[in-house]
Each structure stands twice: as C-alpha cells, then as structure tokens.
Design a protein around this nucleic acid. Structure first.
Lengths: 187, 187
DNA sequence: TATGAAGAGTGATATATATCACTCTAAAAA
DNA sequence: TTTTTAGAGTGATATATATCACTCTTCATA
C-alpha cells in the first residue's frame, strides 16, 4: 500500500521509491492523545507536523481570555506555528489535539538538509508555501467581505467533515464570533 | 548609485553586478497616473509589479458596492493578484494607482526562466513567499483578536507614512470598518 | 473666478453581535 | 450507577458599528 505522505507529496511532484524512502527517513512519528499539545505559546518551534490521523487546532488566547482559532489540521494537513518555525522566533500560537492524533514531523534541520539535497522537495515546499499564502489571502477576503452567516456557510461547504468532528464553539472561535451568535445563525 | 531593486533583493541574497544586470534584464518599466489601473477583476494576471515610486491599492468591490482593500503598495513593495499570477486563474481583485506611480514588472514566463537559471532568485522569491504568508497570518490574527481601535493604532504604528498618503476612507476599507466609525475612533 | 467633486466630521437611528444568565442533554469521570 | 463536565440552545440586555443624512472644507478644473 502506498504511504499516505507519498500520495500527498506526489500531488505536486513525482518521486521514485528510493526518493520517497529518502524523504521519509527525515521524518519521525509521534502519537498524541486528545487535549495534549504539540506547541505552546512562547515555544521555539523546531518541527513541522503532518497529520496522518486525527484533528488539531492552532489557536491563541487573547487578553480577555477568549480563544481564537487560526487553523484546524486534519488528515493530510500540515500544521505548526509557521512564523516561529521559519524565523526561529517565539511562537504566538499553541497547537492542541482535538482528537487522539498520529503525526509525522520533520525538524527544521532535516528540512534544510532535505531541500539542499533534493531540489524537488524545495519545489514541493515552495509550492506549499504559495498555496498556503493564497489560502490565507482568501480567508482575509472572506473575513472582510462576508457576513457571519456567509462565512459559516462557506466553511461548511469547504470542510463539511469539520462540523462532525469539532465542537461548534471552536467553529465560532475560528470564524471570530461568539458561540451564542453562531448557535442563532440558522434561526 | 545602486539600483533600488538591487538594494531590495540584496536584503535577502547577494548579487554580483553581472547577476543583477541579468536579473534586471527580465524586468520592464511602466508609468501610471493616479486613478489608472494595472489589474482589473477578471483579468488573467501575467505580471508581478514592484513599486519604484508611488502608491497603489489592491481591492475588490462586494455585492453591496462596498470596497475592501487587501493590500497597499508603496516604494519597494511587490503588488499583483498573487493567486491569479501563481495559478493562472482569473483575478478576484483590482489594482489601482492612488498616486502617479513608477513600476517595474516581471512576467510569469520571465520569472520562470529567471528562477530556472538562477537558483538564488528562486530562493529570493521563496523567502518573499514565506514572509508574505507570515504577514497574512499576522493580519488574520489581528483581524480576529484586536478591536477596531487597536487595529487602527497598529496600522498607524507600522505604516505611519500611509496615513499621510492615502485618504482615511481607504484606511477604513483596509481595516474593514465604515469611514464614519473610523472617523469617530479618536473621540 | 466659479463650480463641482472628494474627503472628512458628526448627529440620529437601526442593526448585528456580545455578554450574561439560565436550561437541557449527553458524554465522561468518580 | 451517580456525579460532573462539556456542549449547545435561548431569552434579555448592553454595546459596537453600520447606515443615512447633513455640513464644512479643500482642491481640481471648467
């Protein structure tokens, strides 16, 4: 059976068996239970995670104690504090498991090594970075132009599975509204 | 005198005179007057622009006729519709000049050629893409956590020059509030 | 010089959303 | 099984912001 990470990478670049084994040798595996964290605010983040199985959230708590969710991570998604990972600064966000999760991670050093030795993988991550930027741009577009109801509907349309897996209050924290308002949307 | 684009690129990678000339040969120059556009919604965007002199905005008009500003561009900033440029899809945004502007631009083909022939420039743009993504992430963070007043103050702190160059209603369109609310912030 | 448009401030009012308080239910823990 | 906790819905009220209408000023241009 083809490795899920290979399938994921080959959506962008082709790999031989040897190449994939080489890539995979730079990763390590880790399992976490629901409510456990992989990143805490203030950490220097040295790993980028790829979700094999499970569900996570990246978030921060503001001065009023309110949680804001930046990103969810489910199967085949990458998750980390990108700024901290890339610039080696303190993380502004935390990342917790919403479900028991199985993850693969690559360290900053290994990713550096791998991209230096394998130009294909540099292109892979460049493409991922571009796509990530586009997704964020579209989220800003949506935050600016759409009403709460529209944002809710768009998210539901894009990630229907999310609504079966995470509590509504987290959907609210992602959309930037109170859980009460979210609850009243369809009435 | 050192070329401003060279100075800009050398903040990230070093270039010899020959290398910079080679890079520059892939760009072309263009001048636009205030109110003229360089991108219109629906265009297939084939160029990425770099601002030598002037001020621009990338924006879109929603169904209610309200303008939302995604990005301003001033000296040394890159501006385009990134999604359209990278994925060769129709642009969701327009880009207009707020002042008479002088721009350099590189076509998609030339950027492709240049990165293929000059790995340094691939690294330059990869770095730019990473930084762009981080900036967008921080903007989302700010949209979610900060009050209108806080967003205003942060923008003023980060880009004080912007407030002397663009009308307040555009600042409002960038922050996602009405011009009336913005006008009442400091009272 | 006169005229009109763009920018900006502000009062009155409408509307959306937050906040607080309470209830109900189902799942997790004792 | 009983107890506790998390999730979710909802009424009442407070608050922030949008919207509409009007004014004043400045600047471009006819």
């Amino acid at each position: 059976m083809i490795h899920p990470l290979r399938k994921h990478i080959e959506e962008i670049i082709e790999l031989t068996d040897e190449e994939f084994d080489f890539v995979l040798s730079h990763f390590e595996s880790i399992k976490k239970k629901k409510h456990q964290y992989i990143i805490q605010e203030g950490d220097f983040v040295t790993r980028e995670y790829w979700v094999v199985q499970g569900c996570l959230k990246s978030y921060f708590i503001d001065d009023n104690g309110k949680e804001h969710i930046l990103q969810f991570g489910m199967e085949n998604w990458w998750i980390t504090d990108y700024e901290s990972f890339v610039k080696q600064t303190k993380s502004k966000t935390s990342v917790d498991c919403i479900e028991d999760s199985e993850l693969l991670y690559i360290s900053f050093e290994n990713r550096d090594k791998l991209t230096a030795q394998m130009h294909k993988m540099e292109r892979f991550w460049a493409k991922k970075s571009k796509n990530g930027r586009i997704a964020l741009q579209n989220r800003i577009l949506s935050l600016l132009k759409n009403s709460t109801k529209e944002k809710y509907d768009l998210l539901l349309e894009q990630y229907p599975k999310l609504f079966q897996r995470v509590p509504k209050k987290m959907i609210a924290a992602y959309l930037g509204v109170s859980r009460e308002t979210l609850s009243r949307l369809n009435s």
